[in-house]
């Protein structure tokens, strides 16, 4: 059985969600950095993975995160028009929105997958965003659709 991390317990009052966030190097990561430098507190449930561009994020990153026990996955990049590589976020937008529809079609809860634009100047937006999504995923509870299939015991 692939096991969940130690900090997760089954007691709902103690349960801490695990959020995996893929942040583009140029805007959202810098925005999160700004939040830190500005001493803006936000929940520690979020684990940040820095990627060069939101366009780098393949849907398999999201699936893999769920497989490894993520309760929510966030992809964040530069606002449209601000991409360091001109158009990476425009491509990301097409791909990731389509991916979310595919998840929905399969019946995998789309509320578990968030996309956001956070600029390098938006430390406050980042901090609030993380608070909001943490509250939302806490209300949703553990991602049971995926935790049920983690054990890999189904099949013909």
């Amino acid at each position: 059985m692939i096991q969940k991390a130690k900090n997760e317990t089954t007691d709902p009052s103690e349960w801490q969600p695990r959020i995996v966030a893929f942040l583009c190097n140029w805007c959202s990561y810098a925005g999160a950095d700004l939040a830190g430098m500005s001493r803006l507190a936000y929940p520690a449930a979020i684990k940040i993975v820095r990627v060069p561009c939101s366009g780098r994020v393949d849907p398999m990153f999201v699936i893999k995160s769920f497989e490894q026990g993520a309760d929510l996955v966030l992809v964040s990049g530069c606002h449209p028009g601000d991409c360091h590589y001109t158009s990476g976020n425009y491509h990301a937008r097409r791909k990731l929105l389509a991916f979310r529809e595919l998840m929905t079609f399969f019946g995998i809860d789309p509320r578990r997958f968030k996309i956001s634009w956070v600029s390098a100047a938006e430390g406050a937006k980042w901090s609030n965003l993380v608070k909001e999504i943490t509250d939302e995923v806490k209300a949703l509870g553990p991602f049971e659709t995926y935790s049920e299939i983690l054990t890999g015991e189904t099949g013909p």
Binding site: M60, I63, E67, L102, I149, G152
Partner: peptide, 16 residues
């Protein structure tokens, strides 16, 4: 492996 975890990942990847 042909368990649901692998099968979901495979079919999502194929469709996408």
């Amino acid at each position: 492996s042909a368990h649901l975890r692998g099968n979901v990942a495979w079919n999502v990847a194929r469709a996408f």
